[in-house]
Design a protein around this nucleic acid. Structure first.
Length: 488
DNA sequence: CGATAGTTGAC
DNA sequence: TCAACTATC
């Protein structure tokens, strides 16, 4: 009897636990299914870039399945109803899937599991998309979920490393679904009501494997061995570029960790070892935020520390618009926002600078920024994005980013883009501005501005706000909100 | 309980 | 040094 393998954010064949188990249970008679869900597609957070990524990944998955003699069955509707129809049509004995930990997904999957059990069918869900599941790691004494990353990560490694030793292979052959089992064509973006200007990277499992190999290629000048320093430089390609693959599951998180752990067994300098360790820590952040939101689902809508929702945000629409378009007058912020608008991706260091600027300098509610990033980023992931924004706002509990630590966009720019390479790449108006002025072009003498054809206020915006002033304003607003006890 | 520490900072 | 607080063991 066939079984259904329900693909969601795990669009690959290698080290896919639900697929592996489904193949074993059915002797390869697996119905691979993806269901477009309007509740997700039109929730106001999902943008053209993430949707485009999903479509490309599905096309690649279908292609890869066909290499094994099978094909992807695509449906569109309410997941429960669609699965019920598919079970009827295929006489499947059950449904297999990898677990997802967001509130909507939990509710959806629980309903599916309940129906399957009541119908006497198999319901099998798997630990797959994270290294350590949210219930898998609690504090020692009280068995409570962790709030502090440092404490979490101390005990995370051992559990995570054990997972990295348990990879399962991709199937080598699959029984094709019945020829008359209907499948929708993979839609175009326009079909789904989206329009995408940006060019996306090459996507799919093969592309993901290539990105992983490149990042771990010791011969390349910017491999994981240089990650500790190189990740801070937005002008360099010093990051793994795997965020989109980890978002859609075109690569297995266990395989990522396995590569890193393998590399650590080789002789490495202290600096190289630090690069690998730091990257592994980034994988831990992913699990940390997953469990934080799993145990505190309200933080998707509110600050984890409710006092931060008492901040009197200014929420100026014109300033928000200027930030979105990369017209704040702060070159590093504008470069970041324009990179986002041009590439549907932004370097992580600049995400932090830009987020801090929106929240602290402009005093705009972090949720506005969170939503815009979700709509624009090709790697948009509710968990990582919410975690990152709450961190920038300082609002996620016992934060190591206290509210009085306010990023200075000029100092950050000098430190992480010292030659202005990144700025000039995305802000062409500033291409001819000398290094001395590139981080704060409004300090250029008037004659130089005119000589360069880069007059502040005409060719490039004057700063939206003075950082020194904005810093004091933010400190006052935060102090005021935090002094008051939290309202219910 | 008391001791210790808190992603990536700024002034 | 910044301000004090809280999570964790």
């Amino acid at each position: 009897m066939p079984v259904i393998c329900w693909f969601r954010r795990d669009l690959r064949l290698a080290d896919h636990r639900a697929l592996h188990a489904a193949v074993a249970a059915s002797a390869g008679e697996v119905i691979p299914v993806f269901i477009f869900d309007d509740a997700i597609l039109h929730d106001g957070y999902v943008g053209a870039a993430l949707t485009g990524v999903t479509l490309a990944m599905l096309t690649a998955l279908d292609h890869d399945l066909r290499q094994l003699g099978s094909r992807l069955i695509v449906r569109h509707g309410q997941p429960l109803a669609e699965l019920q129809a598919l079970v009827r049509e295929t006489q499947a004995s059950g449904v297999y899937w990898n677990r997802d930990y967001l509130p909507y997904a939990i509710k959806r999957d629980t309903a599916v599991k309940l129906w399957l059990r009541q119908a006497g069918l198999q319901a099998h869900s798997f630990h797959d998309s994270v290294l350590v599941e949210p219930e898998g790691l609690k504090t020692k004494g009280q068995q409570k979920p962790y709030l502090v990353f440092g404490s979490y990560v101390k005990r995370w490694s051992e559990l995570a490393y054990a997972q990295a030793e348990q990879l399962v292979p991709a199937p080598t052959k699959l029984v094709p679904p019945d020829a008359d089992l209907s499948s929708l064509p993979i839609p175009s973006l326009a079909d789904l009501g989206f329009e995408l200007q940006q060019t996306l990277p090459t996507l799919g499992e093969a592309a993901a494997q290539q990105r992983l190999s490149q990042f771990f290629d010791r011969r390349r000048s910017l491999s994981v061995l240089k990650y500790d320093d190189a990740r801070e430089l937005p002008a360099e390609a010093g990051t793994s570029q795997l965020s989109v693959d980890l978002r859609m599951g075109s690569i297995s998180i266990r395989q990522c960790l396995q590569r890193a752990v393998d590399l650590l067994t080789e002789p490495l300098s202290a600096e190289q070892r630090q690069g690998v360790d730091t990257w592994i820590k980034e994988l831990a952040w992913r699990d940390y935020y997953t469990q934080l939101i799993y145990h505190n689902p309200q933080m998707l809508k509110q600050s984890l520390d409710p006092r931060y929702d008492q901040i009197e945000w200014r929420n100026d629409p014109a300033e928000f618009s200027a930030w979105q378009q990369g017209q704040t007058g702060y070159p590093i912020v504008d470069a970041g926002q324009r990179q986002l608008n041009q590439m549907a991706w932004m370097h992580n260091r600049v995400r932090m600078i830009s987020a801090s600027f929106l929240v602290k300098d402009l005093l705009i509610d972090w949720r506005w920024g969170e939503r815009y990033f979700m709509q624009q980023l090709c790697d948009a992931d509710p968990t990582a994005n919410n975690g990152g924004w709450q961190w920038a706002a300082g609002s996620s509990g016992p934060s190591a980013q206290p509210y009085f630590r306010i990023f200075n966009p000029i100092a950050q720019s000098k430190k992480h883009d010292p030659h202005g390479t990144y700025i000039r790449r995305f802000v062409p108006e500033l291409a001819n501005v000398p290094n001395r002025y590139i981080h704060e072009p409004w300090t250029m003498p008037q004659t130089l501005q005119e000589h360069l054809g880069c007059v502040i206020g005409r060719d490039y915006p004057a700063p939206l706000v003075d950082h020194g002033f904005a810093r004091e304003r933010a400190l006052a607003a935060y102090r005021e909100a935090l002094q008051q006890p939290a309202e219910e």
